[in-house]
Amino acid sequence: MKAIGFYQSLPISEPDSFVAFETPVPVPGDRDLLVQVQAISVNPVDFKVRQNSARENRLEQPKIIGWDAAGTVVATGSKVTLFKPGDPVYYAGDITRAGSNAEFQVVDERIVGKKPARLNFAEAAALPLTALTAWEMLFDRMLIEADRDEGKSLLIIGGAGGVGSIAIQLARQIAGLKVIATASRPETIEWCRQMGAHYVINHKNLLPEIKEAGFPVVDFIIDLVDANGYWDTMAELIRPQGRIASITGSSVPVALNKLKNKSVSFSWEFMFTRSMFQTTDMIGQYEILNIISRMIDDGLLKTTIQRVYEGLSAENLKAAHQLLESGKAIGKVVITV
């Protein structure tokens, strides 16, 4: 099969930052699906892994990355019970295994969902990683409940990216929250409004603008940009006994003591935790993706696809990575296979 990978962590402008090559079709394990990949999408985790996986030494075999895909099941492992050949599926995969930048991929059935019927493969591929991340932040990490929390306020720092785009929709449609998203360019401001944000403010002037909008404090905060860079602002804005969640990580200790007097809860979110550690609730991602699929088909959510490159090639992977690395991407970038 054809795959796109890299031997070494190189700047995306380098000719060999991605290379096309041939490799055997993988064989599914007991709980695996073998999927013929129809479309993939690119996320910040992709370029971060590419930049850091082989910085010192050239790999003996090219590394295949990519953690968003939609396709068709062509074979199943001996213990698979949730899917059968011919089923259209979508998923974000497992960071410890070969990725989706290939014509075929094996993936554990417990982290796969049924593709929304009303979406084509490209539209569906835009959703899994960001939908899972947003869902887990809202409902698994911050424990938001619709009946209890309806009408409360949520600040999303970085509303126009992939995760922000779906988090806006989930927070409004499922939890009934008042959603405040940050964006700074006219096109990203408009995108956040299209996704359903009640308020859009400029993260470069966050404190004055959010207070001007009528929110001296907020009940929940999602950070999708820079935990440490916004830490003091978040600590000031969060309501006593509120909750904060972040996906951005930190190279230095986070000053949790600034949350102590308010009894604020803080959570990291890493979408790959369940598959990486084979947690007992790993099948939760199958369940989440199927809920998302039903909401899409019922017209309650919409795909966050924004740009499509036609064809699985090193050139298209480079273009997609360049766009994400620029920080100018809106919504999701998809490549058809």
Rank of each mutant, 00 (worst) to 15 (best):
P253R: 06
I166E: 10
G249F: 09
R172Q: 13
S246G: 08
A181T: 06
I238V: 15
G176M: 03
K178T: 15
L177F: 10
S184L: 04
M195L: 10
G196A: 04
V218R: 04
D223N: 14
I238C: 08
I222Y: 01
G249L: 09
T248R: 01
Q169A: 02
E209I: 06
S251L: 14
L206N: 02
S165C: 10
P253W: 05
V225Q: 09
Y199V: 15
P208A: 10
L170S: 00
I201A: 01
E212V: 00
Q169I: 02
Q194W: 02
Q169W: 02
H203S: 14
A235M: 00
I174D: 00
I166G: 10
G242D: 11
G214S: 13
I247C: 12
A197K: 10
V218Y: 07
R239E: 15
I244R: 00
A255N: 13
D226I: 07
A197D: 12
H198F: 01
T233M: 11
P240L: 11
R185Y: 02
P253Y: 06
I189H: 09
I244Y: 02
N205H: 15
R193K: 15
D223P: 06
I174F: 10
M234S: 03
A255F: 08
T233G: 02
Y199Q: 12
D219A: 11
D226M: 09
T248W: 01
P186S: 12
A175W: 05
P216I: 13
T188S: 15
G176F: 07
W231D: 01
A213D: 04
V179N: 07
Q241I: 03
A235T: 04
T248Q: 01
E236T: 10
Q173I: 10
L256C: 08
A167P: 03
S184A: 14
G214W: 13
W191Y: 11
L256S: 09
S251I: 08
N202E: 01
E212M: 07
E187Y: 04
P240F: 05
M234G: 10
